[in-house]
Write a protein that binds this DNA or RNA. Structure first.
Length: 661
RNA sequence: GCUAGAGUAGCUCAAUGGUAGAGCAGCGGUUUUGUAAACCGCAGGUUGUGGGUCCGAUUCCCACCUCUAGCUCCA
């Protein structure tokens, strides 16, 4: 008889020869299963298990259970679309985080109004309570059927499968190629909402036709769905583009150019505070600050590999004036110019896409001894990358940005220690900023790709170094082939913000290749030249992206040390203006960023404004406070903090600033 | 870059093939205020840019620019 493996360790037997659904009803009616797992393989509830099967229920509320719901929802949506738009070709329709999508190929361009119609049709399908029925066809038969129906994408999918038997699922009048499992019937489909429609390439390849992808959210209960929709709204309200405008933190302007950020005074304060803090930390760790220009000769970037390997994601080179005149004399066309640039016959300058080639030149500017190593060169270096127009997004995806960059040059035997220290630095910085959910990813080379420089040995060595470090530190990490930098593998830090969204921020990279390409050396204890290893690292990544994320993480309510305006002095009436000005001066002298709000509004209005402006503290001064040399302190979130002497208030704020809380 | 959508006052948003409107913000005045919005007034626009259709375009058409969602990319 089949055996049921329950979470509590019990193993009840199931009646033989009946479906799982029936068996569960009889033996374990409390188990809310949506499918079962047998030897790691998922099966529907309608499946009739063999006598020796060991069956593990897949509960509704588990991630796997939710995936099944969402996957079935994508089928129901496809059924609705096919009903409304006959002749629609189906591509793929998987479950994703919080929902599902399905890719369609149809003439009609789907609009938001269509989403409402599709949703209504889905509701109808749910009410039809059609069971999801699995059926299996021999491969040839399956291909014949789909080909006859003109489902060319499905044909392509089957052609990619090895299986001789192909499974389909039917629900009502709709049938789709599918591995399963599915809900028992469409009536179990929980709560859903279609959210958006957007283009998506077939199989994610830009050479393929673009399909229309409809996204939906799906949950077991209306309540869970509503909660998710509320969360989406909260995320929208915290959008850094919106808050950045509202709080005058940064500005993007057509005349300046897309993806080029103007930091407004208040945003600049946040950035300056971050930079000062980082500089102080780096000083303690033996880094040296350097400055390098924004452009450098093309040859420099040919040597580094940036120009040949990433030409299309850079601003085009600035061509030497003399060279340009000569090319004009020769009537050189654009295509010809492009060829000559590639051949290295035309010289010019490149807006730097990375700082490393310039830092390397600083290393090379002197003869280095093993006694000098490691040399750690740090710079808030501004780099330029020509991101595709569709990729730009506020501050978090831009074309000009400043990295909190540094390059460490060390002897091979020092390497792992340096990487370790870098990892520790990144972790401590995130901790300070309240970003506690950090995941590490070891990003490796994709051996099949030709976008990397250097020898296989160098790569193997570097990848081993990184694995040693993460294992030694006992850190949780995932490996990601194909995510490496073009010169070396890296450890990336993926952070979840206050809204549980993921961002790739800091990075620590090991590089044997650029030292080789640039012929870097140091003289060892044996009086012979040796090749150093480089570490590239940027804890925050880019200040633009990082501040953009911080805006959303804090919802513009920055901790005191980062707040552009730390305290606002609010006089009750005109009689206190003079005292309020004195308090303002006193707080300014205590090193605080303070403003006096002496307008003739009522105190309630001033408090409201300061609260909306997310100013951490308000110092309210009326007749009573003026008499005692005190202020009535109010916090933007915690409200009234009581009356205290101005010095006490300043000390309290200074303490809070020092603690960076 | 690709697909779809959008662009109206500093911000958020209305409206229309026939002189473009509100709230907030701004400015001026009245009010002198005790912990999340006092009152009155004024000003603010080549409706993204350039072309076209039309007696007339902000509205319709075309091109371009920028933005949004997603795809692709992300050294």
């Amino acid at each position: 008889m089949p055996v049921l493996l329950l979470a509590d360790g019990s193993r009840p037997s199931l009646p033989a020869g009946v479906s799982i659904a029936e068996a569960l009803r009889a033996v374990a009616p409390k188990v809310e299963a949506v499918a079962v797992k047998v030897n790691g393989q998922m099966r529907d509830l309608a499946w009739v298990p063999p006598a020796d099967a060991e069956i593990e229920p897949v509960r509704k509320e588990t991630p796997e259970g939710l995936d099944i719901l969402r996957h079935s929802l994508s089928h129901i949506m496809a059924a609705a679309v096919v009903r409304l738009f006959p002749g629609t070709k189906l591509a793929i329709g998987p479950a994703i985080e919080n929902g599902f999508y399905y890719d369609f190929d149809l003439e009609h361009k789907l609009t938001p109004e269509d989403l409402d119609r599709i949703e209504a049709e889905m509701t109808r399908i749910v009410k039809e309570r059609a069971p999801f029925q699995r059926m299996e066809l021999p491969r040839a038969e399956a291909l014949r059927r789909l080909d006859a129906e003109g489902q060319s994408y499905k044909v392509e999918l089957i052609e990619g499968l090895q299986d001789e038997t192909i499974s389909f699922y039917r629900s009502g009048d709709f049938m789709d190629l599918c591995r399963g499992p599915h809900l028992a019937t469409t009536a179990d489909a929980g709560a859903f909402k279609l959210l958006s429609v957007a283009g998506a390439y077939w199989r994610g390849d830009e050479k393929n036709p673009m399909l229309q992808r409809v996204y939906g959210a799906g949950f077991w209960t209306r309540q869970a769905l509503d909660e998710h929709l509320r969360w989406l709204e909260e995320a929208r309200a915290r959008d850094h583009r919106h808050l950045g405008k509202q709080h005058a933190l940064f500005h993007l302007n057509d005349l300046v150019g897309p993806g080029l950020v103007l930091w407004m005074p208040k945003g600049a304060i946040i950035r300056t505070e971050l930079e000062s803090w980082i500089r102080a930390e780096l000083r303690k760790l033996g880094y040296q600050g350097v400055y390098t220009p924004h452009i450098g000769r093309l040859g420099l970037f040919r040597t580094s590999g940036h120009y040949p390997y990433y030409r299309e994601s850079q601003y085009p080179p600035l061509i030497d004036r003399e060279c340009l005149a000569k090319l004009a004399d020769e009537n050189c066309g654009c295509a010809e110019l492009s060829n000559r640039l590639e051949a290295g016959e035309v010289e010019g300058y490149l807006l730097k896409p990375m700082n490393c080639p310039l830092h390397i030149q600083i290393y090379k500017a002197a003869q280095r001894s093993y006694r000098d190593l490691p040399i750690r060169l740090a710079e808030f270096g501004t780099v330029y990358r020509y991101e595709g127009s569709g990729e730009l997004n506020g501050m978090v995806r831009v074309r000009g940005f400043t990295q909190d960059d540094a390059h460490l040059f060390c002897a091979p035997e020092q390497l792992e220690g340096e990487v370790e220290a870098c990892v520790a630095l990144v972790q401590s910085m995130f901790r300070t900023l309240g970003l506690t959910q950090v995941q590490m990813r070891v990003s490796l080379r994709d051996p099949a790709s030709d976008k990397y420089v250097g020898s296989a040995e160098n790569w193997a060595r570097a990848e081993q170094n990184l694995r040693h470090v993460v294992r030694k530190l006992g850190l949780d990490y995932v490996e990601a082939p194909g995510e490496a930098a073009f010169y070396g593998p890296k450890i990336d830090f993926i952070v979840r913000d206050a809204l549980n969204r993921q961002w790739q921020l800091g990075t620590v990279q090991v590089d044997y290749n650029l030292p080789e390409r640039f012929g870097l050396e140091y003289i060892g204890a044996d009086n012979a030249p040796h090749r150093p290893v480089m570490v590239h690292r940027a804890p925050l990544g880019s200040l633009e992206r990082f501040v953009g994320i911080l805006i959303e993480h804090y919802g513009a309510a920055f901790p005191l040390w980062l707040s552009p305006e730390q305290v606002r002095v609010l006089p009750i009436g005109e009689a206190q203006t003079e005292y309020a000005a004195r308090v303002t001066e006193q707080l300014k002298d205590a090193g605080l960023r303070v403003h006096l709000q002496a307008s003739n509004e009522k105190i309630g209005a001033k408090i409201r404004q300061a609260t909306l402006d997310k100013v951490p503290y308000m110092a309210i001064v009326g007749a009573k406070e003026a008499e005692k040399g005190a202020v009535s302190v109010r916090h933007r979130k915690d409200g009234d903090q009581g009356v205290m002497p101005v010095e006490d208030f300043a000390a309290r704020m200074r303490r809070e600033i020092a603690e960076k809380t």
